[in-house]
Design a protein around this nucleic acid. Structure first.
Lengths: 198, 198
DNA sequence: TGTACATCAGTGAACGCGCGTTCACTGATGTAC
DNA sequence: TGTACATCAGTGAACGCGCGTTCACTGATGTAC
């Protein structure tokens, strides 16, 4: 069709965005190339003009999504006082909305184990994890901040996984609250009530 | 073949055990009925004498595995002083062996997001999670023990997920150490060195 | 005790289906003249 | 400016394959006589 010079690139991005949503919602294995292309407004045959395989798409999309999340955290840290940045990051991550909307949320909580099983390199994912830990560390008290950041990240990831697994909304809310309290421990400047509601 | 009265039950258990291992190793979607039955020493056709579908098997196997894990934690708590029980549970969960052997490890870290997506009831899983939190709580200091238990469980789950996701063994070890320190915080009776080595 | 039969756990071929991937084709647009 | 052509993003039929499930059959064992 001989379109403008960046049209192909835009299509590629549209496919990647559709895939990012569907993969997180249903799991990589449960999403077909056909569904991704339909979501992107195309037909399946054109997929291979943009990506060499579904696996390559999944690797790129997941690493990209996680590294953009890390960049957003870093931007938050750069644009607010440490304790406010921390509260923003933690409250956003441990929100009921994040638990409910896996399809737009953190790749680790939606696809962590699935990605860990992959035979590919996972180096980009590892770097993104480090960047997330660094962003968290930057808004924590100096003593043991690297360890606290890794523990805090673990706590947040686990809390969202567990809150999604629980079929009891009350337990999910308790998990989120407990995790928030643990990650913000020693920094109780948060005006929010300790109870969670809805 | 008209075998002894408990033979069928034993076969059923053998299938469930094979499935538990393979599901945690490769993910539910990547394991076929054929592979499960071969692992159990049978052929695929007989599967439906024991389970109504692969989905039903997966539900039963995952809930069973998690509730047995909860029972083991409870037994540990019942058989040692609180702080020793806590150290046993936490050190076992946050060990490099657990990170490396997903196929025999905690169902939540191996299949959490995959299970959270399932349409089924998840009630048994939720009860098992509660039982795990209760066991943890029973060996924590009384003040805020329920919250601390939920936060500790989150931290352990997230740490194992992240340690498996990282392709850098040093980062994985740091994550496990940081999580252990956080979960045992306030109870530094652990004689272990703070550094982790392969 | 010995024999014929009934049972039913397990077998393996067959099914329909959806998937990832390929490929000959289409047709809208940029370019040469 | 107008026309013919080249390009190449996108189409959709087709492929081979593996999967979950079904079903007619097998044959080892318990039971009736």
């Amino acid at each position: 069709m001989r379109y403008g010079s960046d049209r192909k690139e835009q299509t590629r991005r549209r496919i990647a965005e559709a895939a990012a949503t569907l993969f997180r919602r249903d799991g990589i294995d449960r999403v077909g190339v056909d569904a991704i292309m339909r979501e992107a407004g195309l037909t399946h045959g054109g997929f291979y003009l943009h990506f060499s395989s579904k696996e390559a798409l999944a690797d790129e999309v997941c690493a990209g999504s996680l590294s953009r999340a890390a960049a957003r955290w870093a931007a938050t840290v750069g644009s607010a006082k440490p304790r406010e940045a921390l509260a923003q990051i933690v409250d956003g991550y441990l929100s009921p909305q994040h638990v409910e909307a896996a399809e737009t949320g953190c790749v680790v909580t939606a696809l962590g184990p699935e990605l860990a099983r992959r035979s590919g390199s996972r180096q980009d994912l590892t770097e993104a994890l480090r960047a997330m830990a660094d962003a968290l560390a930057a808004c924590l008290p100096r003593s043991n901040r690297e360890q606290d950041a890794l523990a805090g990240l673990s706590c947040m990831v686990g809390a969202v996984v567990l809150a999604r697994l629980s079929s009891d909304p009350a337990l999910s809310a308790e998990i989120l609250n407990a995790a928030r309290r643990a990650v913000l421990r020693g920094r109780p400047n948060d005006p929010r009530s300790p109870e969670a509601e809805g």
